[in-house]
Design a protein around this nucleic acid. Structure first.
Length: 233
DNA sequence: CGCCTTTGACCTGCGC
DNA sequence: GCGCAGGTCAAAGGCG
């Protein structure tokens, strides 16, 4: 266990290349996990959780079921607030202390009925000003119009009808973004940002291209406005 | 009153 | 088989 040195993905300057060490001991461990995301399929999601009153509380029923691999996207954002507004309504359903981290990790679920998107939020234990947000799944509904407007939601949604996911992260603050199909693969540092890719270790992103090109849009485009991915700057 | 957060318990998977 | 860590549920309480 090395104590994860620096952030493989983020540099406090949010602007410098990041070094990466595949030590899955760092924060975004969720990625390398790959055990098999304990999730329903993608539809019913949890509802019949505990039909028998209190037994099948969990979702671990699957025996040979590998569960669906929800696409995951993680962001590292420099912010004081843990729960960044992204235009969607989330309900916190749990919080857990994470090993190797002095900060707890919070679990949120999209409150929209058919949407089973989940979000995990944790603070970097090395730099408390950095918040690591991991989205799992894709929203299958538009952004609720009834936003409670917390953190300037408006500018988050602003343009792009997509899901203002990334909008919640001020560009200059966003330091890292990674996607994951489900398995750990490689860390890459691209110019001023570094991406981690999972699943296909060959998506389309040009490593040394100019720190711009990014990843497999197919995956993210749904949640991430292309402008963002395209790189901005 | 409805929605959300908090919090402890429970479950599962994995490593030893 | 046991223990650990991560993830989820659900009851209770708080707030707008």
């Amino acid at each position: 266990m090395g104590q994860m040195v620096n952030y493989p993905y983020l540099n406090h300057n949010t602007n410098s290349p990041i070094a990466s060490s595949s030590s899955n001991e760092a924060e975004p461990q969720e990625i390398p996990h790959d055990k098999n995301v304990p999730m329903e399929d993608n539809e019913g999601d949890q509802h019949g959780v505990g039909e028998s009153s209190k037994q099948p509380k969990k979702q671990g029923k699957g025996k040979g079921e590998k569960k669906e691999k929800e696409p995951r996207v993680a962001f590292m954002t420099k912010s004081d607030i843990d729960h960044l507004e992204d235009g969607y309504r989330w309900r916190k359903y749990g919080q857990k202390a994470v090993k190797n981290s002095s900060y707890p990790r919070s679990y949120y679920r999209c409150t929209t009925q058919k949407c089973n998107v989940k979000k995990r939020v944790e603070r970097s234990f090395q730099d408390s000003s950095i918040v690591i947000t991991t989205y799992e799944g894709k929203h299958n509904h538009p952004i609720p119009s009834t936003l409670r407007g917390t953190v300037g939601t408006e500018h988050l949604l602003g343009h792009h009808g997509g899901s203002g996911l990334l909008h919640s992260f001020p560009r200059h603050q966003q330091a890292f973004l990674m996607m994951n199909h489900q398995s750990p693969i490689n860390y890459q540092s691209v110019g001023s940002m570094s991406y981690e890719q999972y699943g296909h270790g060959n998506s389309s992103y040009n490593n040394n291209n100019n720190n711009q090109q990014v990843v497999d849009y197919g995956l993210l485009q749904d949640i991430v406005p292309s402008m963002f991915l395209k790189h901005e700057s």
